[in-house]
Design a binder for these strands. Sequence first.
DNA 1: AAATATTTGTAATTTTACTACATTTGTAGT
DNA 2: ACTACAAATGTAGTAAAATTACAAATATTT
Lengths: 284, 284
Amino acid sequence: MNILEKISLDMAEFSKSEKKVAEVILANPQVAIHSSIAALAKMSNVSEPTVNRFCRRLDTKGYPDFKLHLAQSLANGTPYVNRHVDEFDGPSEYTNKIFESTMAALEVARQSVDIAMVNRVVDLLTQAKKISFFGLGASASVCHDAVNKFFRFNVPVVHFDDILMQRMSCMNSREGEVVIFISHTGRTKSLVDVANIARENDATVIGITTEGSPLSKACNYVLSLSVPEDTDLYMPMASRIAQLTLIDVLATGFTLRRGNKFRENLKRVKDTLRNSRFNRQENN
Amino acid sequence: MNILEKISLDMAEFSKSEKKVAEVILANPQVAIHSSIAALAKMSNVSEPTVNRFCRRLDTKGYPDFKLHLAQSLANGTPYVNRHVDEFDGPSEYTNKIFESTMAALEVARQSVDIAMVNRVVDLLTQAKKISFFGLGASASVCHDAVNKFFRFNVPVVHFDDILMQRMSCMNSREGEVVIFISHTGRTKSLVDVANIARENDATVIGITTEGSPLSKACNYVLSLSVPEDTDLYMPMASRIAQLTLIDVLATGFTLRRGNKFRENLKRVKDTLRNSRFNRQENN
DNA sequence: AAATATTTGTAATTTTACTACATTTGTAGT
DNA sequence: ACTACAAATGTAGTAAAATTACAAATATTT
């Protein structure tokens, strides 16, 4: 396992001084691998043995061995870890932390995606007579985006923010229609209600939500995403990005299934938009 | 560059003893990274300084530095790159490619962000009497999301999909109000028109768009994002994710600027949502 | 074959990491 | 509030590792 992730994961188990070391390393791992134990100890304001103990706590043989692991983590292409923003961060720190946390979350999400389920859902979507996307709050904008994508496919696709419209829409659903519900927690009551209505009316109900949630139980198929949500700032951030990316995956799967001729069609849709735009100087 | 490749490439330039060292390393690099210079010298039947010289010939600082490079080569990580989906990809391939391309795009975006401008925009937002978000098509859902975030801050924030409503809203804007326009290309005519109206009415106009685009010229401030857009499938994907992440950055900067007491407030907003949810079994 | 250049090794030096032990800090019980 | 114990951190000494300077050996050139 990536040792950088492990450090941020084990953060709770570290002692006060060990945390100092961890923070210095996470803040700038590139510097850490090129420092001696003495230099790192000084940077962290701790003694050398503390650094050594820190390394051993991470199941390495000692400091040199730790550096080796660290170097491998950095080479791995993912120096991205869920780094929490704190109140003393300047613009440079919080900007980088948020981008990196988002990338880290995407990596975790990628590994948690059930590929077989993606394939099945793409199957269902290509055969659907109608596709609906429902979500509330932050997930509503994900639905909005999904509609924007699937609309280009010339498929009947709908979305309502309004909970009553959602209910009515599901009430009228029938076999062969697919309804996708998006919710990170999967515990929004009214959305679960709507999902149940859709299911009672024989629609194929798909959830993009957390495994085992109330919403997931109301669905025929669940595409679960595990994302380490950053709760520090009380806002959904990474979960939403992961959902959007998953929508991109579904849309891509959809176009691939439809074949080459279909992609010509997509190009036409895009060309249509061209007239609403200023031309570029460069040809493209 | 991968140092293992470099070793086999430079083989011709090595002296007799250095070749011995190179062969031992190539034969079993995993062992090499866990050996001391003395052990490796013994394995290669050469003296310690010879190993040291061998390392320097490969443009490393010395033996420990060489081991670091070697470890990174062995980590064999495929850094995230923009991998294009092709028509023969199965679900596993396209899923991973899309996640990886998205991560790669975020990395590029992160490096292209103008931190000073982020700081200035956060400044403007905290002082704004009203904040508006306008975008069309795929960018509309980004606006939707931005509103969802900033609304929690108890700031007057508005968003319209409707181009006429956007015009009217900007017509009535005044000094001290901030209008943010989101568009990847920055070449959507009607949006540029609206931006000009906003500017004529003394609003502070901010663009999240490509540098040098028509839209960027209509703005007082531009937050440019360079994203390698995947044009294969004729859909905006990565650009949108980058925009959303940038919105997250702005929202985070906003909350940090407002201080601790303000974050208590955010927690209250979140707690309010709790009543609309099914409770979790675990306490949280 | 002698002279020079290049490579390689030996031994001393310096740097680095580790261990044992002492001190401090924190915690629980009287 | 104090004592006793446990956990944590640091100090100083020791061991190990890497590097340097220099000497010996091996090629190379004339």
